[in-house]
Design a protein around this nucleic acid. Structure first.
Lengths: 123, 123
DNA sequence: CGATAATATATCGGTAATCGATATGATGTT
DNA sequence: AACATCATATCGATTACCGATATATTATCG
């Protein structure tokens, strides 16, 4: 259904896509400055008008994964107050963000093109 | 992180999202007329410029699932030639398509709003 | 006419990630 | 003092995509 050497470039990988969106949301939130996990969840929920929402059983493993991948870097805040792990964007994360944002944009236009014909036409 | 009774409406369920896209692609393809599975895969790939692509280990289980859910209906073509199972949209499938297309559109705008600030600015 | 490629469907095991539940503890509020 | 909220962490169940594999039929080409 497609040779291995397809040049394509912007393919859709269903498995990686939801994961990709989550990581993108984290990166987009951190782009505005360092934040700790709980705050990231609040920011994402607020900025997306409640469309995107992190369950904490999902959030923290994602942050650990992204830290291990070098996309973000977490440090325990040394100050007083509640213990928080503050994450910042790494250079790799910044690069990843701008590249993936374009990629997702392309994939979305592809999806929209297919759905446009199918959209409910207002009477 | 959010009360159970949140009215929200258009929430993002990461688990169901990739699945939702696959089903949407099938429905969108069938909207143009009845087709058998293999043809659906070719259509989707062509209409999306190769962005979306069904692996056959993915395609057929999805078709079975959607048939069981009553979104599409498959019949073995009685004519000669290769044995094909031809699928058509059910009324439920048609309803699901127009509803979900709107929903996905909303979710996408939410995502785009968050990414817009993060997009690579052309030098 | 014999070999091969493309068409067409089906299923299974491995893998990976979300999700809900559960745990822990500090801080602020009444 | 009691309670809600903030804040992080982990585990088991579930789900479903994906590659590999199997089976058959039809078209193509030498």
């Amino acid at each position: 259904m497609s040779k291995p050497g397809t040049p394509g470039g912007q393919e859709f990988d269903a498995q990686g896509f939801a994961r990709g969106i989550h990581e993108l949301l984290v990166l987009a939130a951190l782009r505005e400055g360092p934040r700790h996990g709980y705050q990231i969840a609040l920011d994402v929920e607020a900025h997306s008008n409640g469309v995107f929402r992190f369950r904490h059983g999902t959030l923290y493993p994602i942050l650990h994964r992204m830290d291990a991948k070098g996309l973000i870097h977490g440090r325990w805040s040394s100050g007083k107050g509640r213990r928080k792990k503050v994450y910042s964007l790494t250079d790799g994360g910044r690069r990843h963000l701008s590249g993936e944002a374009d990629r997702v944009q392309d994939i979305m236009s592809g999806l929209m093109r297919m759905l446009r014909r199918a959209r409910k036409v207002p009477a």
